[in-house]
Design a protein around this nucleic acid. Sequence first.
DNA 1: GGTAGACCTGGACGC
DNA 2: GCGTCCAGGTCTACC
Length: 334
Amino acid sequence: MMLPVPADYVLARDLCSYGYFLLEPNLWDPASCVYTTTLDLGGVAVTLRVTQGARGSTRAAREGDREHAAGGALTVKADRPLDAAQRRLVRAQLSRILRLDESVRTIEAFHRADPRFAASGRGRLMRSASLFEDVLKTVTSCNVTWPSTVGMNRKLCAVFGRRSASGGRAFPTAARLAAARPATLRARCSVGYRDARIVELARIFNAAAKGRRAGFDPAAAEDGTLTDDALFDALIELPGIGPYAAANILQLLGRYSRLPLDTESIRHGRTVLGYKGSAAQVMKKVRRHYEPFGEHRFRSYWFELWEYYESKRGASWTWERETTGKTFTASKLD
DNA sequence: GGTAGACCTGGACGC
DNA sequence: GCGTCCAGGTCTACC
């Protein structure tokens, strides 16, 4: 099937814009510029192969040539025949992952606030097929080094993910993890002390999907009716979600006003921004540094960080999941 | 309201 | 091959 995209959309640039593109079930192949993922459509899993036309080439993206890089509609090939309802689900989930809801106008608004990224056209941040997956990917990235995050997501898919016709594994649904035993998660997915928190999160999302009140409303979190502050307060009540994780989930929901600051931010403050002092002092200065970008401050922060990674490891679309993709953050950079 | 210590895993390192 | 140390955000108990 064909999937229409905003006029400025570049698959290589806009998919390889956030670390989750390196986590299963996602796979970006730098050699062929093919994005492969497996989605759970409820009862059946499908592995998809997503490509963009020649105009959306990595070469044009690499050279920051926006006019020629914008490559038109995506071609999506599934590993099994899909009925109309399944095709709608595929479109919805892919649109969420690729941020196709971010129009040219919203990206231009970011570039007006921070013109440094107008030439490259950066503005969209890749995310997951569902809010539940985004929450779990955030939880599995807390208090661990990146290779452990990669491992946990691989094992979660392998153990609990539905299998597609071609052997791909989707990310596990809330229903599947809600029924899991914490001890199994710990033993087979190496999630450590996150085991009970993950099951609890799954039960909350699963209950909400079945229309039961669960203290957190994923639909309200997605529909844009809550203020950023109200959404943050709701997220931080979830098990395993602290200030960093809540702020990160906010950006995954398209709210860029808060900064998920962590040890990586302190490194960035010292190494790139040249700040000195204790960790708390550097953190405060980093926060102040991004104040002028207002409601866009996360994107300014993130793409600054991302450019630093690319200066060390090459353009992100050239990273392979099993090699460069495991070494691109924090202490691994030097 | 602020802070110390426990929670786990995997990688690096020394022997 | 084994033991030790370290990185990493959240949670709880305590002051």
